[in-house]
Amino acid sequence: MKKAKNVHSAAAITNRSRRRSMQRYSPLFLLPTVIAFGIGFVWPFVQGIYLSFFRFKTLRFIEFVGFDNYTAAFQDESFLHSFVFTVGFTLVSVLIINLLAFAVALVLTKGIPGSTVFRTVFFMPNLIGGIVLGYIWKMLLDGLIIRFLDSTLALNATYGFWGLVVLLSWQQIGYMMIIYIAGLQNVPVEYIEAAKIDGAGNWQILRHITLPCVMPSVTICTFLTLTNSFKLFDQNLALTGGAPFRRTEMLALNIYQSFYNNVTNMGVGQAKAVIFFLVVVVIALTQLYFTRSKEVQE
């Protein structure tokens, strides 16, 4: 007994000392990632904020202008409009994508034959790039709109809005569906059986057992769809390009346009980008806080 204890503690000591000697190296192993993160993220980020206070075209010639760029950004009517448009778009697409993705996930976990094939098919659109999707959907939707509504995507901002919703839903539902399926498969069978024995109906099971159990998936999915919709760029550029009259321009595209369409000062675009960053952070953190609080801990 005593011997065994000794062996045990001896092993613990060697383990611990080994771990400690390994730990000494941790900064070394972290170094490559830290450097990459510094070069690829921290430095451009800091420089971006710094540059938003300057009037510049290239980094060699910059001129300090204080908050002028921010003033110009807030006075830009197209920026404010794109903000409202983006918020509207985000609300609608987050709702639609999550509802449909959850519905599809529910159906595909019922054990219908061919479920795996369907899962793959639904997931596929997510593998295609946004620009390509944008152009393809532009052709498809324009064909329909010209035929039945006597207009085009570029002429009517309402069609542009719904076109973007359709496009993003088509692309993202499959991805969110996979996350929901993973969540649904983790719902303990015992809970559902117990509820059935207690006489709960399908709706009650869904409402009081399944949904609370998949809340972590809901958190992830709303977070992803929220930020994806808010930051949408490629699809916007390819599908409508902001037409008509920049009425379907979302924030990211608006920033891009003010960055590259102004031949003398890119600072305004930079200021808009900083504002954009702050807004995305605030929204995402708020959303995380609220959905997290609904998650159940097992």
Binding site: A154, L155, G242, A243, P244, F245, R246, N261
Partner: peptide
Amino acid sequence: AEVVSALSA
């Protein structure tokens, strides 16, 4: 871009 939007409309 604005001229094009206007011509389109």
